[in-house]
Write a protein that binds this DNA or RNA. Structure first.
Length: 464
RNA sequence: GGCGACGUAGCCAAGUGGUUAAGGCAGGGGUCUGCAAAACCCCGAUCACCGGUUCGAAUCCGGUCGUCGCCUCCA
C-alpha cells in the first residue's frame, strides 16, 4: 500500500513518490513577533507526524523550516517595546524552540532566517527583473503577476477575480493591483539591507522561495503550512520560483492543515483570541495535547476547549496504562517471556495503523487502532497472558505519532515518603482501620498521587 | 459579491455506494475491591432538512437551513 497525500495543487489524493533518495520537506515557520499559540502547535504537530511517519516508512527526510524575522508587526512591536528587532525575534525564536521541544516535535535540520538570506533573495529578484517578471518602482520591486497565465493554480482562483479584489496601499506604484512586493524600500528609521535598488527589506513571499531554493534545491517534494497560507503566500512562492527556475513544479505535494478555532472563530495572533502554547503546556500533558490534535484529521478544523483537552488527557492515560510495565515485577510480563496462554498478536493493529496513515495521514483512524490494541493488552493482562511484544508495538506506533506514553515526570525524592505512607496504610487496612487508611489515600490523591490496590500489593502513580 | 470547507450518538470524531455506522470522553448496569482506583463484560445514533439517482446512500446529484474560512497580516 502506497502512502497517499491530498495535494492542494490538484485537489486530489496522490500517491507519494519522492524525487530522490531524501524527501525534501519545507514547512512554513512563524513570524516571531509574538508568542506562539496552540494553532501553531497543531500545525507543527501535524507536520512532525508527517515527518515521523515518512521516517517510519523508511524514507530519509530533510526538513527545512524558516523564521520570518523581519516584518511589519515585528518592527512595530519592537518599536513599542523600545528594543531592537533582533532582540525581540531572538527571544521569540528561543521560546519557540523550547516549546517545540516540550511538544516532542522533532527539530528541523535547518532553520534559516529571512534576515540572513537576503543575498539569495536579491539574486532571485535581480534575475526576475532581467527576465521581465519583476519591475522597480521608487526603490520597491514588484512581481508582475499577469506575466504567467498559471497564476492562481494553487488557490484555484481565476486571475480576473483577484484583480477585482486587490487593493493598493498608498504610496505603492504597482502596474497592477495584484502585483506583490519582492523588495520594499526602507522607510525612515526602519531596519534595512543594501540592495541594487537601494536600502530596503525583502517582501514576505520571496524569503520562502529563496530559502527553499538554497537549502533544498529547485524542486522539492513537500511544502506544508496552514490553510491560510495558500493565498497569497504559497501562490506567490510558486509564481516567483517557477519564473526563476523555469522548472515547474516547484513543489510536488502541497499540504495544508486546517486551523484551530477558539469557540466558533479562528484562533489567530491578529485577533488576539489565542491560547499560548506555554499556557496549554502548563495545564495539560504533552501527550494530551498531541492526542487532542491527532484525534481529528489535519484538514478538519479543531476546537480548543477544556472538555476536548480533558477527554484527550484521559485517552492518553488509557494508552499509557496499557503500555506501562506490569505491576507485578516477579511476573515480568513486559519481558515477553512470562505469562501463560496465547500472546497478544499486535500485527493486525500495526497493519491497520499503517493503512490509516497511508490514507493521507488519517490519524483519527490510526489512533482507533492504537486504542484497540490497548484494549487487547488490558484484556490479556487481566488473563495473565503475555503482553510484552504487544506493548512494544504499542510504543512503537505511539512514537510515530510522537506520543511518549511516559509516566509523568516524577520527583523521586518524594518516593520514600510515599512508600512509607503506603506501608502504614497497609497496616491500617490489615487492622481494618479503613477510615484512617482511606484518609491516607485521599490525602495522597489531593497531592496528585493515585493508589491502586492490586493482588500484588499497592501501587502508586502520579496523576497528570 | 467570488472561491472553499463543514453539519454523524450528551461532547470530540472515523466513515466517500452494500456485513450488526470505528475509536475516545462522559453516562448507566455488572465483575473485581473492605471501599475505591485501574481493568474487564454489557448498554446508546439511521447520519441537519427536503427531493432525486440507484436493486441498495451517511456516502452520488439538486435545493433549503445553519456554521466556519479564504479573497488583507496570520500555522
Amino acid at each position: 500500500m502506497p502512502l497517499k497525500l491530498r495535494n492542494t495543487l490538484s485537489g486530489q489524493y496522490e500517491e507519494f513518490v519522492p524525487i530522490g533518495d531524501v524527501v525534501k520537506l519545507y514547512v512554513c515557520g512563524v513570524t516571531p513577533w509574538e508568542v506562539s499559540h496552540v494553532g501553531h502547535a497543531m500545525s507543527y504537530i501535524v507536520f512532525d507526524v508527517l515527518r515521523r511517519y515518512l521516517e517510519y516508512r523508511g524514507y530519509r527526510v530533510r526538513h527545512v523550516q524558516n523564521f520570518t524575522d523581519i516584518e511589519d508587526k515585528i518592527i512595530a512591536r519592537a518599536e513599542r517595546l523600545g528594543i531592537d528587532i533582533g532582540q525581540l525575534t531572538e527571544e521569540m525564536i528561543e521560546r519557540y524552540h523550547q516549546e517545540m521541544r516540550a511538544l516532542n516535535i522533532l527539530p528541523a535540520h535547518v532553520y534559516p532566517r529571512a534576515t540572513e538570506e537576503t543575498p539569495t533573495m536579491i539574486e532571485m529578484i535581480q534575475a526576475l527583473i532581467e527576465k521581465g517578471y519583476a519591475y522597480q518602482a521608487n526603490g520597491d520591486v514588484y512581481y508582475r503577476v499577469t506575466r504567467k497565465e498559471d497564476y492562481g493554480k494553487l488557490s484555484h482562483r481565476p486571475l480576473d477575480a483577484m484583480v477585482a479584489g486587490a487593493r493598493v496601499e498608498p504610496g505603492e506604484q504597482k502596474e497592477n493591483p495584484v502585483d506583490f512586493a519582492l523588495w520594499k524600500a526602507a522607510k525612515p528609521g526602519e531596519p534595512s539591507w543594501e540592495s541594487p535598488w537601494g536600502p530596503g527589506r525583502p517582501g514576505w513571499h520571496i524569503e520562502c522561495s529563496a530559502m527553499s531554493l538554497r537549502y533544498l534545491g529547485e524542486q522539492i517534494d513537500i511544502h506544508g503550512g496552514g490553510e491560510d497560507l495558500i493565498f497569497p503566500h504559497h501562490e506567490n512562492e510558486i509564481a516567483q520560483t517557477e519564473a526563476y527556475t523555469e522548472k515547474p513544479p516547484f513543489v510536488r505535494y502541497w499540504l495544508h492543515n486546517a486551523w484551530v478555532k477558539a469557540g466558533e472563530e479562528k484562533m489567530s495572533k491578529s485577533l488576539g483570541n489565542f491560547v499560548p502554547i506555554s499556557e496549554a503546556l502548563e495545564r495539560w500533558p504533552v501527550d494530551a495535547i498531541r492526542l487532542w490534535v491527532l484525534i481529528s484529521p489535519y484538514r478538519t478544523p479543531l476546537s480548543y476547549s477544556e472538555e476536548a483537552l480533558a477527554a484527550a488527557q484521559r485517552g492518553a492515560e488509557r494508552l499509557r496504562l496499557a503500555a506501562r510495565a506490569s505491576p507485578d515485577p516477579s511476573a515480568s510480563l513486559r519481558a515477553g517471556g512470562a505469562g501463560e496462554g496465547e500472546a497478544v498478536d499486535a500485527a493486525p493493529y500495526r497493519q491497520q495503523f499503517i493503512e490509516a496513515m497511508d490514507d493521507d495521514l488519517n490519524t483519527a483512524k490510526a489512533l482507533a487502532a492504537l486504542f484497540d490494541l490497548a484494549h487487547e493488552i488490558h484484556r490479556a493482562r487481566d488473563e495473565t497472558r503475555p503482553i510484552g511484544e504487544a506493548q512494544t508495538v504499542l510504543l512503537e506506533l505511539a512514537d510515530v505519532l510522537g506520543l511518549t506514553l511516559a509516566e509523568p515526570e516524577a520527583d523521586m525524592s518524594a518516593a520514600p515518603f510515599i512508600e512509607l505512607l503506603i506501608a502504614i496504610r497497609d497496616e491500617l487496612r490489615q487492622a481494618k482501620q479503613f477510615e484512617l487508611a482511606d484518609r491516607v489515600r485521599s490525602g495522597l490523591a489531593e497531592l496528585g498521587i493515585a493508589l491502586e490496590d492490586t493482588p500484588q500489593g499497592t501501587e502508586w502513580r502520579r496523576r497528570e
